Computed example of a mutant assay.
Amino acid sequence: MKRFLSGSRLLWLLGICLTVSVFLASCHDDDDHVRPKVAGLMAFNLAPDKPVVGVALSGNELNPLPYMSYTGGYLAVFPGKRYTESYDAATGESLAVDTPTYQPDKYYSLFVTGMGDAFYNIVVEDGLDSLSGQAGKSYIRYINAIPGSGSPAVTVSNGKGELISDHPAFNTVSDFTAIDTGAITIDVNDGGDIHTSRTIAVEERKVYTLLLTGHPAGTGNDSVQIRYIPNAMLTLDSTADNAPKAAE
């Protein structure tokens, strides 16, 4: 099936930085009209052979996403059961269709994954409202978006030892884990074609997603890589930025 951009958008950006309580509240305007409650959605293009991916909810399009980029923050979307489609932005060809239910005042991530002729929309509730800012602590999670990777060993460690040790299958999204702030090393190894590592610094009260992406046969931008993005800063501040961002 093919589809093309209509140009309509009913989505507006909430921003990366969220309040400590991490909620989306209904409010009143000057005429005391009640605005509907909304859900928050962050979308990612993790499909190595799709240079630009589009995402639409019930026909309303998000900004096109280059490979390894994301929306840069949570977009406010109307809650309920929504027809959610990812598609090749260059050809309009549909990649994957799902109908998840978005609850009001909840935050979600949508990862477009896969390659070749098999693509997926992985929609997860992020559970940010269950996280609390703590002195000296950060939160991390990861997604294994490496097609054909099987279940590689994924470890996260710091100077004190291992923080995470797992063998996630393709398309697995872990829960958020509280860790000590500072330098951490992420290692992904399947004992064969995949063996990569990276050291990053995580900051106090920030929430991160680690993106394990690319594919084992890749040699350039599509090679296996470890990227990361900040989902939220558990503070009282909030900002907005509508430009898609590349994972670091």
Rank of each mutant, 00 (worst) to 15 (best):
38 V>N: 14
38 V>R: 15
40 G>A: 09
40 G>N: 10
41 L>M: 04
42 M>V: 11
43 A>M: 01
44 F>A: 01
44 F>W: 05
45 N>P: 02
47 A>P: 06
48 P>K: 00
49 D>E: 06
49 D>R: 05
51 P>H: 09
52 V>N: 03
53 V>K: 06
54 G>W: 06
55 V>I: 13
56 A>Q: 15
56 A>G: 06
59 G>P: 02
59 G>L: 02
61 E>I: 04
62 L>V: 08
62 L>A: 05
63 N>E: 12
63 N>Y: 07
63 N>I: 03
64 P>G: 01
67 Y>V: 12
68 M>P: 07
68 M>H: 09
68 M>W: 10
69 S>R: 01
69 S>K: 03
71 T>C: 02
76 A>M: 13
77 V>M: 05
77 V>C: 13
79 P>Q: 12
80 G>W: 07
81 K>Q: 15
81 K>A: 14
82 R>D: 08
85 E>H: 02
85 E>K: 09
86 S>Q: 00
86 S>W: 03
90 A>H: 06
91 T>W: 01
92 G>T: 07
93 E>C: 00
94 S>D: 03
95 L>A: 00
95 L>K: 07
97 V>H: 05
98 D>K: 13
99 T>L: 04
99 T>S: 14
99 T>K: 14
100 P>T: 05
102 Y>S: 05
102 Y>R: 05
103 Q>G: 12
104 P>K: 14
104 P>W: 11
104 P>T: 12
104 P>H: 14
107 Y>P: 00
107 Y>A: 10
107 Y>L: 14
108 Y>D: 00
110 L>R: 09
111 F>M: 13
111 F>A: 10
112 V>D: 11
114 G>P: 00
115 M>K: 15
115 M>Y: 12
116 G>Q: 08
116 G>A: 01
117 D>I: 10
118 A>Q: 15
118 A>V: 12
123 V>W: 04
125 E>S: 11
125 E>I: 09
126 D>A: 01
127 G>I: 08
127 G>Q: 07
127 G>W: 07
130 S>G: 14
131 L>N: 13
134 Q>I: 14
135 A>C: 09
136 G>D: 04
136 G>A: 06
138 S>E: 10
138 S>V: 03
139 Y>N: 10
139 Y>E: 09
141 R>Q: 04
141 R>A: 04
142 Y>S: 05
145 A>Q: 04
145 A>I: 06
147 P>F: 04
147 P>A: 04
147 P>M: 06
148 G>M: 00
149 S>Q: 09
150 G>I: 11
150 G>S: 11
152 P>D: 06
155 T>R: 12
155 T>N: 10
156 V>A: 10
157 S>H: 03
157 S>M: 11
